[in-house]
Computed example of a mutant assay.
Amino acid sequence: MRQPSRTDPLFVAVESAAITRAHVAGLVAGRIAAVRVPGLLPAARCHAITAALADAEMDRYDESRVFPVVAKFGPAINDHRDGGDLRDDYWEAARAAEKGWSTLGLPDAPRELCLAAFRAAWPDVAPGRRHRREMHVGIVREINAGLQVHFDDAVREYAGRLLDAEVVAQLAFNIYVRVPPVGGETVLWRRRWQPDDEDLRIPGGYGYHESVADGAQSLTLRPALGEGFLFDPRHYHTVRPATDGRRISIGCFVGLTDDGRLALWS
């Protein structure tokens, strides 16, 4: 792989005790690459969540599109995307997930865990709305075998607007509630999609051959238990396979909208 001859001093991860307004603004503006919040959730709460999930009925991403297999709890919008639109069965999956989570005996739903991480950082944060209906917030994902190299960008993936408000910047947020002893790193490249990248798309998949990021500066970040992680998913990124153990996170997308709000969805 060709290595970058020069590096961007702004493409770095910062650590903080909490997500702040400056962090969100810095990610949107490109002044930082990622924000890490160690101990956002105490270890005891992480253990309680993963223990409760043992009794939950986990689903999988659409295996005709997402491989290796990724288990999940809750809807993922791209499993309900059709021709640049969001199918109605997304709302059915959201209701089923919320009902299923309510039976696990936990004090906080994924929605609250995600929203709580941003309330001190932004004056107006709430679930995004589509046709005046609140989007689902908070998906549990178990990524043990890794992910294809990909990017996430609702502006490109949805033909009109995904939300009622215009999303002018998109971030991704995860809280790690179980981490493997080896592997499971997130790799983030300082490179966004370009039209010629389609020549490197994996047939039938959602992602690209890793050579799409050849020569681009990268960050490799190993998750820690209870850590919060915020980054711009419009950069190419991936998850390395867990060599041993399980990698479970709760996450959502975060959109800065044209009316100055933070809108969350999953």
Rank of each mutant, 00 (worst) to 15 (best):
Ser5Ala: 08
Arg6Ala: 09
Tyr61Gly: 00
Tyr236Gly: 02
Pro110Arg: 02
Ser266Asp: 13
Gly74Asn: 04
Ala213Glu: 01
Leu10Trp: 10
Tyr61Gln: 05
Thr7Trp: 09
Asp196Ser: 12
Pro180Leu: 01
Ala154Pro: 11
His136Ile: 03
Ser218Ile: 00
Gly204Val: 07
Ala34Lys: 06
Pro195Glu: 02
Gly39Arg: 10
Thr50Trp: 08
Val12Tyr: 10
Thr103Lys: 12
Asp199Phe: 13
Arg141Trp: 14
His131Arg: 13
Asp232Lys: 08
Gly215Pro: 07
Trp265Phe: 15
Ala154Lys: 01
Ile175Ala: 03
Phe229Ile: 07
Gly228Ala: 15
Ile202Thr: 10
Tyr158Phe: 15
Leu115Ala: 00
Ala159Cys: 07
Asn144Thr: 15
Arg141Gly: 12
Arg201Glu: 04
Asp79Ala: 00
Asp82Phe: 10
Phe231Lys: 00
Ala34Tyr: 11
Asp164Gly: 09
Phe73Pro: 07
Pro223Val: 03
Arg246Cys: 12
Trp91Leu: 01
Glu166Met: 05
Trp265Gly: 06
Ala126Lys: 12
Glu198Tyr: 04
Pro110Lys: 01
Ala25Tyr: 03
Arg246Ile: 11
Phe173Cys: 02
Pro107Val: 02
Ala263Tyr: 09
Pro223Glu: 04
Asp152Thr: 11
Ser5Pro: 07
Ala97Cys: 13
Val187Glu: 15
Ala51Arg: 15
Ala44Asn: 11
Ala145Gln: 15
Leu221Pro: 06
Gln3Thr: 11
Gly128Asp: 03
Tyr158Met: 13
Tyr208Pro: 09
Asp124Pro: 06
Ser218Leu: 09
Gly160Thr: 10
Val254Pro: 12
Gly245Leu: 08
Arg192Phe: 04
Ile143His: 03
Ile32Tyr: 08
Phe118Ser: 00
Ala159Gln: 15
Leu225Ala: 06
Glu185Ser: 13
Met1Ile: 06
Leu86Gly: 05
Arg247Asn: 12
Asp62Trp: 07
Ile248Glu: 03
Asp82Trp: 12
Arg240Gln: 14
Trp193Cys: 01
Gly255Asp: 15
Asp8Ile: 03
Leu188Ala: 05
Val35Ala: 01
Arg246Val: 14
Gln148Trp: 03
Asp79Arg: 00
Ala145Thr: 11
Ala43Ile: 08
Lys99Tyr: 11
Val140Asp: 03
Gly30Ala: 02
Ile139Gln: 11
Gly30Val: 07
Asp214Gly: 09
His209Ala: 10
Tyr61Met: 04
Pro127Ile: 09
Trp189Asn: 00
Val167Tyr: 00
Thr238Ala: 14
Asp199Lys: 12
Gln148Pro: 12
Val212His: 06
Val187Leu: 09
Asp259Tyr: 09
Ile32Cys: 06
Ala52Gly: 08
Phe73Met: 10
Arg192Asp: 02
Arg201Ser: 09
Gly128Thr: 09
Glu63Gln: 13
Leu41Asp: 03
Phe173Val: 04
Thr20Cys: 01
Arg247Thr: 08
Glu112Leu: 03
Pro180Cys: 02
Gly215Lys: 06
Glu98Gly: 03
